[in-house]
């Protein structure tokens, strides 16, 4: 690698002569070794999923959660250095709280992504800290109806100035991915971690921009994509963790929640089935390939 031995990669915030911050690039490497995380934004909600590699049989199954809730309507999943991910979540929760203190209303997904993007970026500016060794996916559902202000005790005027406009719609489902550099974009489908390439390829096949898929379909796709992205040869076992967020009239009532066990198991069953089916096809193909070789 060109960076090694030049000395420009030995501390954070130092530009190399060609304008790169190598420490940030190395932090990305830490992400690329982590279990795959994905997020899918569909018409009526957001799904987050993560592949948790089982590093020891002694781990308590299902007890160690990797997807965290921020406020009540936002979910965060991350790949890379897990303690850094915990730090990210703690900070996100602080941001959500201070937003509520200031504005008496929940933080929107885009505002949280912006705040956290700034926070990660700040960790690329100084030699006294290192960048975050994670890429985080933030999903949320911003309320579509007018919410009461925090602490509101009455209903206020029912008409006239300050009256309600019941037809107006706000918010909706949102998905962002934040990288160690602080860079973030909004996504229809986002993937990071070890299996991101395979996952991205699968996400691109989904119709997320046009007619769209339903939240429940997205849950099943998310499970399938994690199974596709998992590398059987390198890692033995993994646990699938999934969460979802719908609008107030959807299954989670506007809250970020773990996908119910029954639905997750159904999604996993379908994922395994589709994987087996395509394995059969591939085997047929491979046999053909070998002949050519």
């Amino acid at each position: 690698m060109t960076s090694i031995g030049t000395g420009y990669d030995l501390s954070n915030s130092i530009f190399s002569p060609d304008g790169r911050n190598f420490q940030v690039e190395y932090a990305v490497k830490a992400v690329e070794n982590g279990g795959t995380s994905i997020g899918i934004r569909c018409k009526d909600g957001v799904v987050l999923a993560v592949e948790k590699i089982v590093t020891s049989k002694l781990l308590k199954p299902g007890a160690n959660k990797r997807i965290a809730t921020v406020d009540r309507h936002l979910g965060v999943v991350y790949s890379g250095m897990l303690p850094d991910g915990r730090h990210f979540v703690d900070r996100a929760r602080d941001e959500a709280r201070s937003w509520r203190d200031n504005f008496k209303t929940p933080i929107t997904t885009s505002d949280l992504a912006s705040r956290m993007g700034n926070y990660l970026q700040a960790h690329t500016l100084y030699q006294s800290v290192r960048p975050f060794g994670i890429t985080a996916i933030v999903g949320g559902f911003d309320a579509q109806e007018e919410l009461p202000v925090d602490g509101q005790v009455g209903s206020g005027p029912s008409c006239g100035a300050g009256g309600k406009n019941p037809d107006k719609k706000y918010g909706g489902p949102f998905l962002y991915m934040i990288e160690p550099s602080g860079l973030y974009w909004g996504y229809y489908g986002a993937a990071t971690g070890k299996g991101r390439q395979a996952a991205k390829a699968e996400l691109e096949k989904l119709d997320l921009t046009g007619e769209g898929i339903t939240l429940e379909e997205a849950v099943k796709e998310a499970a399938r994509i994690i199974y596709v992205a998992h590398d059987d040869s390198k890692d033995k076992e993994f646990e699938l963790e999934m969460s979802w967020i719908s609008g107030r009239d959807g299954p989670t009532k506007g809250l970020h929640q773990e996908v119910p066990k029954a639905l997750r198991e159904e999604a996993e069953r379908l994922a395994k089935k589709s994987l087996d089916d395509s394995d059969d096809e591939e085997e047929e193909k491979k046999e053909g390939d070998k002949m050519e070789e």
Binding site: L10, S11, N12, Q23, A30, E32, R130, P131, G133
Partner: peptide, 17 residues
């Protein structure tokens, strides 16, 4: 190596020695 002096330096492989 050069990357194990402190806990704020990533190695090229993304490790913190």
């Amino acid at each position: 190596n050069n990357y194990d002096n402190d806990s704020v330096t990533f190695s090229p492989q993304g490790r913190i020695f």
